[in-house]
């Protein structure tokens, strides 16, 4: 049985267009001297895809979203992430994820999605007092 407060529907994948940086080559064409990279059949004006970067700052902590970048493939995305997001000794591990592989919740659905738990004290362990005074708990 699925508890009724678990969201079971996913909003459709949205491109993280808010993260696209200004000066995106898509708008202005390739920068001067841009080498042509990719399969021979690819259009020479194609833009490198966007990747989301997650950095683990030290062992035992989880990866945290650090930002995004462009790269032609996953191997280069990892290297670009290393160069862009760990320059000041920030990390011990990096994940990169294609931005369009991320399904994000709809910011307009805040009320229906995230306000329901408010006021439901009984979902917190501290709500229950029967256990008070029980040893080793």
């Amino acid at each position: 049985m699925i508890p009724n407060d678990t969201p079971t529907s996913q909003v459709p994948s949205r491109p993280l267009d808010s993260q696209a940086r200004p000066g995106n080559p898509a708008a202005v064409g390739p920068r001067p001297g841009t080498p042509v990279v990719g399969a021979p059949q690819e259009s020479t004006t194609s833009v490198w895809p966007l990747w989301e970067v997650f950095v683990r700052s030290s062992r035992g902590l989880s990866h945290v979203h650090a930002g995004s970048l462009h790269a032609p493939d996953a191997a280069m995305a990892l290297r670009n992430a290393r160069d862009l997001y760990t320059r000041r000794n920030e990390g011990v591990s990096i994940w990169v994820v294609p931005a369009d592989a991320i399904a994000a919740s709809d910011p307009d659905a805040k009320g229906s999605f995230f306000e329901s738990p408010q006021g439901k004290d009984y979902r917190h362990a501290t709500y229950y007092t029967k256990s008070e005074g029980v040893k080793h708990l």
């Binding site: 001067p32 970048l69 462009h70 160069d83």
Partner: peptide, 14 residues
């Protein structure tokens, strides 16, 4: 500021 992409600017700068 002259590399093919901003990411490569930073890589070569590093």
């Amino acid at each position: 500021s002259r590399a093919p992409e901003l990411e490569e600017d930073v890589a070569l700068g590093n």
